[in-house]
């Protein structure tokens, strides 16, 4: 099949979004379903159908969402209403919008936990400590499922 000439192709925009909490492992389909649910409930089927949102990349704590040019503001607003991927609480923070994925890849700064993960006890619960740059500390409750994370700083841990 002969490809469509460039001038007749749909113009696209790509939105780079950071996935919170840090270190969360999510699959592309899970992110896509959450984005579609958020956008559809906010703007309706007709608007979302025309915007054609799709998740084209999801790795390293970032997701790239594709949409039609001119609808990027609406889709970015819809991304702000994403509150969970499946059963896990999460958030998407829009970082940048661009016309190419290549430009967005330059904006990706991988967020890796610092060495020195340990344990902490808050109240009667034991937590695994993950340290991140800028003195951020994520505490994940030890257990099999329904672990409640806590988001602290180094100073908060020292006080306890």
């Amino acid at each position: 099949m002969k490809p469509r000439p460039p001038v007749m192709r749909t113009k696209r925009r790509y939105i780079l979004a950071r996935i919170l909490p840090y270190g969360m492992v999510v699959d592309q389909k899970g992110v896509y379903l959450s984005v579609i649910e958020a956008a559809t409930s906010l703007f309706g089927d007709a608007a979302v159908g025309l915007a054609q949102p799709a998740v084209v990349f999801c790795d390293g704590g970032y997701a790239v969402v594709r949409c039609r040019r001119g609808t990027e503001k609406e889709i970015a607003t819809a991304l702000a209403t994403v509150t969970a991927f499946g059963d896990e609480r999460a958030a998407l923070r829009t970082v940048a919008v661009s016309g190419t994925i290549h430009a967005l890849r330059r904006r990706i700064k991988p967020i890796c936990p610092l060495s020195g993960a340990g344990e902490a006890k808050i109240g009667e619960n034991c937590f695994t400590v993950y340290r991140y740059p800028r003195q951020k500390v994520d505490l994940v409750e030890k257990g099999i499922k329904h672990q409640k994370p806590l988001f602290f700083t180094e100073a908060d841990l020292e006080e306890r």
Partner: peptide, 9 residues
């Protein structure tokens, strides 16, 4: 579930 210092940051 987030401390005040973390929320401020």
């Amino acid at each position: 579930d987030s401390s005040l210092a973390r929320m401020a940051a």
